[in-house]
Design a protein around this nucleic acid. Structure first.
Length: 424
RNA sequence: GGAGAAAUGGCAGAGCGGUCUAAUGCGGCAGUCUUGAAAACUGUUGACUGUUAAAGGUCCGGGGGUUCGAAUCCCUCUUUCUCCGCCA
């Protein structure tokens, strides 16, 4: 959520930046917010004055009672008259205005960094880095959904029987490969200075709101109605919410956490080749990295995180490219996002396996995650996160790219984790 | 799931209707002393809002109520602890 103060003082800049994100109603909403804000501040002033007066009288009555001057106390009581009713009226007006302002503000996406390229669709994203040659496959090469069946690694139909489409059952070496990847990603994260955490995989409303999934993406999450909990769509939600209502010390920076969790996404409305095989699932595994940093450092941190994820892909020997997302393709809360895509050789397409974003103060403002700066002033920290990495599409690319006539080769770094070097 | 108790500042803990702008201790920070450190002593030490700065306003788990006045009384929700039951 954007900071009200910032909007108040930089209206034109906010509008200019929101335009990069192609946010249509910017002018209308921002103007409405500022109008309500001005009104609220006026009423607040009147309300505060009234309360000050009432406090004064109450104090006097206290002193009179103590001195045993009952009559004078009664006279003072009479002075309070309709103050109480007025106070109540002010409170109601203020609450109404605040609610209305809030309802408007949560609709406004984050202002993108000026580094964000203009554009509306994924085609407008900017390729900033490309690594590795696309492999040439043998003549009988097939997509991963055929390989998983051929080698009995993943049973999609069995998952349909147990839960539904999009909930695969990993078996044998397929399951072991999953476990290997999770351990590999976590070990790398720890080596990079991240603290490993195992958070809850359901969250309450407040947490969903804190990182921006609510109210914006209500329909994308599985909801446990009876307890009013949401299955997490990413570890970002519980891990970032660790810092909700926390005031950090400057010496705590950088706060680095990583965690493995299953992730659940309803993905309503998806269809076709995008959801074939492992391309898009309702439940999948992911290791997430999250950092809370000093505002001046957040863009350096973003680059560091991008490099880190790129390093993982290099070690896995997967051809990949890095995209800087354009205004129209960025997520709601992000100020700058890099997507990492691996080349899936049998499908002949790029698959997104990581998204690394700087949220600046967008999340921390909702979370009230702050720190005391050198001058002793509290200010909002910056939050960032990235997938490092999401498993299914990595598995898809590994299987497809490394298939030979004799089986599927496991990349060197994973062999110690898998306990085998070939799936055959 | 049943019965009982509790929730106060970074922590411990007092306050149970009227200077509470919340005692006291610990911790943190600054100073004195010291070559330096420790100890001791002195001072300081929350968040939000508001203002050029102040004044003022709000906050004692959340929400609501009683009252001229609520940390303190009432209702409600949540959480924690103790005992019982069930259980990986």
């Amino acid at each position: 959520m954007l900071q009200l103060n910032y909007i108040r003082e930089n209206k034109d800049e906010v509008l200019k930046r929101l335009a990069i994100k192609n946010f249509k109603d910017a002018e209308t909403i921002i103007t409405a917010v500022l109008a309500k804000d001005a009104e609220r501040r006026n009423i607040q002033k009147d309300s505060d004055n009234l309360k000050a007066e009432a406090n004064q009288i109450a104090k006097q009555i206290g002193e009179l009672m103590k001195a045993g001057k009952k009559d004078e106390a009664e006279q003072a009581k009479a002075k309070t008259g309709d103050m109480k009713a007025k106070e109540k009226q002010f409170d109601e007006q203020l609450k109404k205005l605040e609610d209305e302002m809030h309802a408007l503000l949560v609709q406004v996406p984050n202002t993108p960094s000026f580094k964000v390229p203009n554009g509306k669709t994924p085609e407008d994203n900017e390729v900033v880095f490309e690594h590795g040659a696309k492999p040439t496959l043998h003549a009988k090469a097939v997509p991963h959904w055929d390989l998983t069946t051929k080698y009995d690694l993943i049973d999609f139909e069995l998952g349909v029987k147990i839960a539904g489409a999009g909930f695969p059952v990993y078996k044998g070496k397929g399951a072991r490969l999953q476990r290997a990847l999770i351990n590999y990603f976590l070990d790398k994260g720890i080596a990079q200075g991240y603290q490993e955490v195992q958070p809850p995989i359901v969250v309450n409303e407040e947490s969903g709101y804190g990182t921006g999934q609510l109210p914006d993406k209500e329909g994308q999450m599985y909801h446990v109605g009876i307890d009013n909990l949401y299955l997490i769509p990413t570890a970002e939600v519980p891990v970032t919410n660790i810092y909700r209502d926390v005031i950090l010390k400057e010496s705590d920076f950088p706060v680095k956490n990583c965690g493995y969790t299953p992730c659940f996404r309803r993905e309503a409305g998806s269809y076709g080749k995008d959801v074939r095989g492992l391309n898009r699932l309702h439940q999948f595994d992911k290791v997430e990295i999250v950092q809370i940093v000093h505002p001046e450092k957040s863009y350096d941190t973003l680059e560091e995180m991008r490099e880190y994820v790129a390093g993982l892909l290099k070690e896995l020997e997967l051809p990949f490219r890095t995209l800087k997302l354009c205004g129209g393709d960025m997520s709601f809360g992000s100020a700058l996002t890099y997507d990492m895509e691996v080349w899936s050789a049998a499908q002949q397409r790029w698959l997104e396996v990581s998204s690394v974003s700087n949220f600046e103060t967008f999340q921390t403002n909702r979370l009230k995650c702050r720190f005391k700066d050198a001058n002793g002033k509290t200010q909002l920290a910056h939050s960032l996160n990235g997938s490092a990495l999401a498993l299914p599409r990595i598995v898809a690319a590994l299987l497809e790219n490394n298939q030979t006539e004799n089986g599927i080769k496991i990349p060197k770094v994973l062999v110690p984790y898998c306990g085998f070097d070939m799936i055959s």
